[in-house]
Simulated assay, not measured.
Amino acid sequence: MTRTEHTTHDIDVDAPADVVYAVIADARAWPRRFGPTLHVEHAELAAGVERLRIWAGANGEVAHWTSRRELDRGRRRIGFRQEVSSPPVASMAGEWQVRERPGGSTLVLTHEFTAVDDDPQGVDWITRATDRNSRTELGNIKQLAESWAELARLEFEFEDSVLVDAPLETVYGFLNEAAEWPTRLPHVARLDLREDTPGIQHMSMDTRTADGSEHTTESIRICFPGAGIAYKQLRTPSMMSAHTGRWSFAQTEHGVRVTSWHAVVLNPEAIPAVLGPDATIASARAFIRQAAGGNSRATLALAKRFAEERHG
């Protein structure tokens, strides 16, 4: 008989229960808010029901699963069950519950899971990954909820697009073949890429800025051929506490629209060291918009030229 394992983790949060619930409910923002989460694809199924495709770091690896969530805002509960799991997980389900308490709230996260073939090593792997990620997620939710007003100032998104008169697969190939970027993109000084699992790219890159300096980033990219490339920086420039993004492609009657989208969370403590003592949140946002957006626009322009010259 298959053995079901149970875990419970909880944390007290000095923030209203409704705020804590809001953090958990907004799954599309998880990659920039929660360390282990790399990418989330979201689809509404019905009122209060959604399907999530989630990629996350687990014990140094990238795990992927599909979950169904049922959201009960009135009771501040969110139940989840993996519809498609990745070995060694055979099944995984659980619940988030936010309880009011004097001066704040308590967040409880429960899991129940089974391992493939009840393998003891699989049970141990899942237990360790669940414990590590649960503790990380609860700590992150606490920090986010307790600084919710400030987060609105630190978190922002932006995007740039270009229209390419060439086949979609050609321009996708340019952005997918990141190992070639040092010879194709002037602002990339070095890039190391490994792809142990097809479509999951681990990238380390040195990027030149407009003033000639260089910074190193480390990212994981999740590639969807012909549709998009999502990424999360694991090592960010100092002014960012988080940076995620996506290259997306849309066929139009006038060509392929390629869009570079970024989501950034500022690290306010690093701003004076980079921009000077008089720098503000607004000036830091403008700086990152120009720096990161500038590199993306340069990449888009070169991708356009590469694809159109190849098929000109």
Rank of each mutant, 00 (worst) to 15 (best):
A166R: 07
T299G: 10
F113P: 09
Q143A: 15
R305S: 05
G212M: 06
E157F: 01
T4L: 10
D12K: 01
I281L: 14
E169R: 12
V256I: 15
A301N: 07
V62E: 06
G199Y: 10
E100G: 11
S85W: 04
P186I: 08
V164A: 01
H215I: 05
A152E: 15
G35N: 14
T236V: 10
D160N: 15
D165Y: 02
E95L: 00
H187R: 08
T8I: 11
L163E: 08
G57M: 09
R285E: 11
V20H: 01
W55L: 08
A242K: 10
A43M: 03
W55S: 10
G312Y: 00
P225K: 00
I271G: 05
D165V: 15
P167C: 12
A27G: 02
G103R: 06
I78D: 02
S134Y: 13
L144P: 02
Y172P: 07
A292E: 11
L300H: 08
R235H: 06
M92T: 01
M239L: 13
S248Y: 04
D160Y: 14
R194H: 07
P36C: 13
L154V: 08
E146P: 11
A301K: 10
M1T: 12
A63F: 06
A166W: 02
R297T: 14
P272V: 00
G79E: 10
V162F: 03
T8C: 12
L302G: 06
H39K: 12
R53I: 09
L38W: 10
R132M: 07
E269Y: 05
A90R: 04
R69G: 06
R69F: 01
L275A: 05
F249M: 07
E41G: 04
G212W: 07
A27K: 03
R28E: 15
F224S: 07
A303S: 08
F224C: 02
G48W: 00
Q82N: 14
L302M: 13
R208E: 01
S238A: 15
E195Q: 08
T183F: 01
T299L: 13
A291F: 00
M1C: 09
S248N: 08
H39E: 11
L154P: 07
T259Q: 01
H42R: 14
A270V: 03
I288S: 05
W125H: 10
V274E: 06
S105H: 03
L144H: 05
V84S: 09
Q290F: 00
R310W: 00
W247T: 07
E218Y: 11
T252W: 14
M239K: 03
A90V: 04
P16I: 13
Q233E: 15
P16A: 14
K304H: 02
L107W: 07
R75V: 06
E180R: 10
V20K: 01
V40W: 03
T106V: 09
R297M: 12
L52I: 03
R28H: 13
V256K: 10
D160G: 13
V49N: 09
E159Q: 12
R73I: 10
K142W: 04
G74D: 13
R305T: 00
W30K: 10
S134N: 13
I78Y: 03
A27P: 01
R310V: 01
R257S: 06
D211E: 08
G228A: 08
A27N: 04
